[in-house]
């Protein structure tokens, strides 16, 4: 089954709008793409299009929070965080305001729009900010739980929302708790830590590896910050080797977070799968993933590399 994360996001937002009258939704002229237009149709009084002004958008959200509202501010991730980073740092994080920042079209999910519209640096930009929680659900099903969880959580949150339909790999009954990673699959030989669409690719890679007699454990690290160190450490103590996978630059994202932690507490052979340190190209979502090496094959190959390195 395939679900577009943005669709799951917008539907849940509408549900929440009925349950919680304090929720307000702000957008920067991309309401059709972010699908917040669904919220607008249902709750026109609580929807505000501020036009193409992302910095203004962030601080207006902060002002709503001052007055006790629960704002969700939406725009394309790279424009929102790039234009609004200093505003997020000061008026949301330093000021400690309960604002939910929703980055759309994350990774390469804007596809043929190409590199100007990709968002492959956003985890790094948000992860460095004190007080910020950074979330990227594995699929549309988990997105629904995540949207509810971030609405409950008091404090700044950055949520990554993809545009393209992606495979559902989580189960309806899976628990979702911010900061608590989910083990998708148990295994003894290595740990694959993934977020977003890369969880599905990790599952595919694990199947490929099983055929070669390698059992991979997969951690769905849906909350990139705060990182669930306990789950990670427990797994790594067992496996002694790690591959990370994310639809984000190899610099500053999930892989970096995992490496920063493990380098200090339990150094093990490690590979970081992500987009390389260069700008992208136009293409279909799948073509770009191929070009970037965001594939199950690349994960499986990296798994073999770390296993080789692990050998005494």
């Amino acid at each position: 089954m395939l679900i577009a994360p943005r669709e799951a996001y917008a539907q849940t937002l509408v549900e929440l709008g009925t349950e919680n009258k304090d929720i307000v939704v702000l957008d920067a002229d991309v309401a059709k793409a972010s699908m917040t237009v669904l919220f607008q149709e249902k709750f026109p009084d609580r929807f505000f299009d501020l036009g193409i002004s992302e910095s203004d958008l962030i601080c207006t959200g902060a002002g709503f929070a001052v007055a006790g509202k629960l704002p969700f501010v939406n725009a394309y991730a790279n424009f929102l965080l790039g234009n609004g980073w200093e505003q997020i740092r000061l008026s949301i994080c330093y000021a400690n305001k309960n604002v939910k920042i929703i980055g759309h079209n994350i990774g390469a999910s804007s596809g043929k729009d190409g590199p100007t519209h990709f968002s492959l640096e956003d985890i790094a930009l948000m992860r460095v900010l004190p007080r910020m929680t950074v979330v990227e659900p594995a699929d549309g099903l988990e997105m629904k739980k995540a949207v509810r969880a971030i609405a409950e959580h008091v404090g700044p949150v950055y949520l990554r929302v993809g545009r393209e339909a992606t495979p559902v790999v989580t189960q309806a009954e899976d628990e979702f708790e911010l900061g608590k990673a989910n083990i998708v699959r148990q295994g003894r030989d290595l740990t694959i830590v993934a977020c977003g669409v890369m969880v599905a690719k990790a599952v595919a890679a694990a199947e490929e590896l099983t055929a070669a007699g390698i059992e991979a454990e997969i951690i769905n690290m849906h909350t990139i910050k705060p990182l669930d160190r306990d789950t990670l450490l427990q797994s790594v103590q067992k496996t002694g080797a790690v591959v990370t996978a994310e639809e984000h630059s190899v610099i500053g994202g999930l892989g970096s977070a995992v490496a920063e932690f493990l380098a200090c507490s339990r150094p093990v052979p490690l590979r970081i799968i992500g987009s390389p340190d260069k700008f992208g190209i136009c293409g279909t979502y799948e073509q770009i993933h191929q070009a970037f090496g965001l594939t199950a094959e690349r994960i499986a190959q990296a798994a073999k590399e770390v296993l080789e390195q692990k050998k005494p």
């Binding site: 958008l57 002002g63 709503f64």
Partner: peptide, 8 residues
Amino acid sequence: SVANGAAL
């Protein structure tokens, strides 16, 4: 911008 948010 913050004032606008509170005013809205």
